[in-house]
């Protein structure tokens, strides 16, 4: 029984641990990549991540690609005069010495034309293209539609 409980804990904690995985490219650190479960493949998915630039040169996220979606795009949720809109973001600035978040209510990746529904507990790769640093691939954990972010010990740092 004890072993069973331990195994169950490991299975359930594995996805969260993956979202807490850190990938680096040049001066950039990419972590906390997560997404929300979708109902079917017709509705768009979403992609959130944190990027830290510890260098002295400004960079920018200029695009994302993933086998999980036919048309992934960068978007920004903008609320003006109380009305939310979601314009396409040509790029997301990652200034030298700063961190940027693709997070609920702000910048996010919109995953249109999903190849399959995103299910809680699944993961999929997303390749981020940076203007200066080039490309890096992260594993994205699918959390519940209700999730507000991955549960990492260092989240928010």
């Amino acid at each position: 029984m004890k072993h069973f409980l331990l195994a169950t804990t490991l299975i359930f904690s594995a996805p969260a641990a993956m979202a807490c995985e850190t990938v680096t490219i040049g001066d950039l650190t990419v972590e906390h990549a997560w997404s929300k479960a979708t109902i079917g493949a017709g509705r768009p998915g979403v992609f959130y991540v944190e990027i830290k630039n510890s260098g002295t040169t400004d960079d920018a996220l200029v695009g994302i690609t993933t086998p999980a979606a036919g048309m992934p795009m960068l978007h920004e949720t903008v609320v003006q005069d109380g009305i939310a809109s979601m314009p396409h973001a040509m790029s997301v600035p990652v200034p030298a010495g700063q961190s940027v978040q693709l997070a609920p209510g702000g910048y996010h990746g919109m995953l249109m034309e999903l190849t399959t529904a995103l299910k809680e507990g699944d993961s999929f790769p997303v390749t981020l293209s940076f203007e200066k640093s080039g490309e890096v691939t992260v594993n994205v954990d699918v959390l519940s539609l209700r999730a507000e972010g991955p549960d990492c010990a260092d989240a928010g740092q």
């Binding site: 109902i39 509705r43 998915g45 979601m86 209700r146």
Partner: peptide, 16 residues
């Protein structure tokens, strides 16, 4: 609307 990937699930999560 339910095809909304960011604002709507975020608001519904907050409300919950």
């Amino acid at each position: 609307f339910t095809w909304c990937p960011d604002v709507c699930p975020t608001t519904l999560s907050d409300i919950s």
